[in-house]
Every structure is written in structure tokens, then in C-alpha cells.
């Protein structure tokens, strides 16, 4: 059995390490995801674990096993975020999983599968009732920010439906980043196991890039220049406008696709704007961090 150790702190910064360990296509034998030592997990980590398990299952043609975290807090949180509902049919789990409690007051958006436009409507409907209070009380954003927040979610989820051609998941949560930033943040994680940005744009745009065509240039084309596979000039606005809104809120956005990651980060984040040479991975991963206004709740 091949054992994949899940990082003890599973978030946007460590999820690459997990994804890089997923064995290649045609791997024989069982795979075990050892999450016993996970003490902290955020939406990027949770969605990353769902994706890693799904890819491992598809590549090895058998259900990987998941050893659950020993931390009761982490287990309880995974339950509240609907993690166990999301991994039914993805992982074999021998231990008892916690029931999903009714108390969801601190959850902004549980892990939600996105495959069709109706899923996007459900995501927008669901955050309406919760986002307003969290954005204003925790982040100090104006009351109308719930609309911009919903628009961001709508556009990132539509990216899966319109371009990925494969299943995806989204989750969001508010945290107090006391040590890292000294403020509250909202983290949005969106991942899919579709064809990625390079695959989506290749037919329409790869020729003009010639030898330079890669995961990185495909990300630059979409992220910086708004290129899309559709000839319609009204297309390609989604990511551009998400970037603009995230910048207005002094937030960070990164997108990993294939072997590259591109980002737009503010001064409080030291993530490099472009990373290449990551392990090949299907689909795309979008991470958005929205910080509280300075002088807001700490």
C-alpha cells in the first residue's frame, strides 16, 4: 500500500505538497491518505483533499483509504463543512465519521459540488443568508458587499461549468488570522479536475504562442489578458472582474493549473506572482483570500 502523508497544516500553502504526492496514472495497489496528524485545515486544504482523493481513485481504479485526523476539533470541523458528504464514493473510511451538526453559524459555504449552472444558483442562494453578517461583522465590509461577494462566487463557479469540462468543488470560511495577519479573513477555495486553462484555451490560442505555449502562458492569457476559448467579445470578463474586486478589498487571488500557478497578491502576502514546474495535476485551483479592513475586528 502506498502511503501519502497529509500535511499537519493543510491550507493553500501546503496543498501543493499533497497534490504532488498523488501517484500517476495506472498506479497499482491501494493508496492510503494518512491524515491522522492534521491539526489545522482550511477550505483550500479540504477541497484539495477531496480532489486528491478523486484523482487517486480515478488513476488507480480503486478507492483510496483515508485515515481520519485524530484531532476532535478538526473532525468536527470537517463534519460541519460537509466534507464527509463530499467524499462518499471517493475514500474508503473505516472509522466512524462525525454527524453533520446543525450548527453552521460559523460556516460561510460548505464544500459544494459544482458541475452545472443549477449548482451555481445554489451556491449564490446559500451564501446570501450567511455572507452579509460575516462580511460586515468580521471583515468590516459595507452591507452591499454581499452582492460583490456573491458575484465573485458565481463567476469562479461558472469557470468550472463553462471551461473545465469536469467536476469541481467550492468552499468558503471566515477565520481569524491572528498570527499571520492580525485580522479576520474570508478564504474561498475552488477546485476542479477538468482540462485546466491550457486545455481550455489550446484550440483557439496555442498557435499564436508557438513554442512558448505552456500552462504558465495559458494562465497569463486568461488571468492577465482575459482570453477565452469563446470568440464572443463579451466573454472572458469573469476572472478579470474577480481580480479587480479582490484588489479593491486588498485581497489575494492565485490560480494553479497544470504545472503553474499565477497570482495577484497584496503587500501582506509574499506569494510569488508566477510559479512554474509544479507536478502535473488535472484541472485548476483558485484560492481567494479577503482580509478585514484595516482597523476592523481583530
Amino acid at each position: 500500500m502506498q502511503v501519502i502523508p497529509v500535511p499537519g497544516s493543510l491550507d493553500a500553502q501546503t496543498v501543493d505538497a499533497l497534490l504532488d504526492l498523488v501517484p500517476p496514472e495506472g498506479t497499482a495497489g491501494r493508496i492510503l491518505f494518512d491524515a491522522r496528524h492534521v491539526r489545522w485545515v482550511d477550505p483550500n486544504g479540504m477541497v484539495g483533499l477531496v480532489v486528491a482523493g478523486t484523482v487517486a481513485r480515478d488513476r488507480s481504479d480503486t478507492l483510496p483509504r483515508l485515515e481520519l485526523p485524530e484531532s476532535a476539533d478538526v473532525l468536527s470541523y470537517l463534519g460541519r463543512m460537509a466534507f464527509f458528504d463530499s467524499v462518499a464514493g471517493v475514500f474508503e473510511i473505516e472509522q466512524r465519521t462525525p454527524r453533520r451538526s446543525g450548527g453552521t453559524s460559523d460556516v460561510l459555504l460548505e464544500i459544494t459540488p459544482v458541475q452545472a449552472n443549477s449548482d451555481v444558483h445554489e451556491v449564490v442562494d446559500r451564501v446570501q443568508s450567511r455572507a452579509g453578517a460575516i462580511l460586515s461583522s468580521k471583515l468590516g465590509y459595507p452591507g452591499t458587499s454581499v452582492v460583490q461577494f456573491s458575484v465573485i462566487l458565481s463567476e469562479v463557479c461558472q469557470n468550472i461549468v463553462e471551461h473545465a469540462d469536469g467536476p469541481g468543488w467550492v468552499a468558503a470560511q471566515a477565520y481569524n488570522w491572528a498570527r499571520r495577519l492580525g485580522r479576520w479573513v474570508v478564504v474561498i477555495a475552488v477546485m476542479d479536475i477538468g482540462r485546466g486553462f491550457r486545455g481550455s484555451l489550446a484550440e483557439e490560442h496555442s498557435a499564436r504562442y508557438g513554442d512558448r505555449w505552456s500552462d504558465a502562458t495559458a494562465l497569463e492569457a486568461a488571468f492577465l489578458h482575459g482570453l477565452t476559448r469563446f470568440p464572443d467579445s463579451g466573454r472572458g470578463q469573469g476572472i478579470q472582474q474577480i481580480r479587480r474586486q479582490v484588489q479593491r478589498w486588498n485581497g489575494a487571488i492565485t490560480i494553479r493549473s497544470g504545472t503553474a500557478r499565477i497570482g495577484q497578491v497584496p503587500e501582506w502576502d509574499d506569494t510569488p506572482p508566477l510559479v512554474e514546474g509544479l507536478a502535473p495535476f488535472p484541472g485548476s485551483q483558485i484560492s481567494i483570500v479577503l482580509p478585514a479592513k484595516e482597523g476592523g475586528q481583530t
Binding site: 456573491s150 458575484v151 458565481s154 463567476e155 461558472q158 463579451g234 466573454r235 470578463q237
Partner: peptide
């Protein structure tokens, strides 16, 4: 209540 960019375009 909510109008996203895709719908504004359409």
C-alpha cells in the same frame, strides 16, 4: 438582488 457579469452581458 444579484446580477453577475455573465448575466449583465446577456
Amino acid at each position: 438582488t444579484i446580477l453577475d457579469f455573465s448575466c449583465a452581458d446577456e
